[in-house]
Amino acid sequence: MMSAAITTRPPTAPVPHAPAAGGTRRRSRVRTRLELAFLLTPALLLFVGFVLVPIGVAAYYSLYSWNGFGPLTDFVGLDNYVDAFSGDVFQGAIGHNLIIATLSIVVQLPLSIGLALLLNRKLRGRSVLRMVVFAPYVLSEAVTAVIWLLMLQPGGFVDEILRGVGLGGVVKLWLADPSVVLYTLFVVITWKYIGFGVILLLAGLQGVPPELREAAALDGAGAWQTTRHVVLPLLGPTIRIWVFLSVIGSLQLFDLVWIMTLGGPADASSTMATYLFDHGFKRYEFGFGSAVAVILFVICFVFALFYQRFALRRDTAGALTGVR
């Protein structure tokens, strides 16, 4: 506030009581800085120690061929990066990540919005339904993966249910058919994460003032028009944040895939993260694994930056930018 007042003052205007005011200002500025230092230092130390330094160390390791034992001696420059990008399996993995991210937006988003609108209406058993939709999100990924791994075995629970309702014809080798497995995993991911989107959007819907709907209704807007032109635009910030979280989540997909398929069969469901674990840790290629980790980080980081810059700019204005 104070500095805003200062900058709006014409620079040529005389300063009344300059010395006294300057003294107060300087003292309070020192105090602000001390406060900032005091409040930020612990978090900053943790962030530097556990985020920035490891990223730097990974970048350093990525320039070596190193199996994790002994000193780093075999400097290979950018070879690890070249190897990663020129490998079919890693290219495939990036493709799988992009497919999951795209499907998330195209399928999960409309589904979440629909469910959220439905669950926002007054209907009997609403809180129970909300809980049911949200419950899978509470399960850990490992538990989810094991449950679905067992249910999706040939002749297992899923197949039996489908046959029971007369859909025996759509039964596939869900986890064993390379052309199906990625989409099977997407269904499980959707099952697990749809609740998160719904809860987020429900919270967003609470922020839509009822007066606006009433006004729209008075102006003769139907239910669809109200939803389309009043509710959805106001849900914009929530939707944009959901898309952000969803894409980042899709890019970093690991646990579920690793437990259900190990990225197989024949790498048909590998993701960047499973590739990283498979070729970095399992093969004791820590230099190469670090290179893949750096690639994964850069992709996420660049996406995050661009998304912040272009999609989230208005939503986060004042929170992340223009502190004073």
Binding site: L149, A176, D177, V181, A266
Partner: peptide, 15 residues
């Protein structure tokens, strides 16, 4: 082998 054996776990569950 059984159907879909490339998706079968070795030691988890009855399947």
């Amino acid at each position: 082998f059984q159907d879909g054996f490339v998706g079968t776990p070795a030691q988890q569950g009855a399947g």
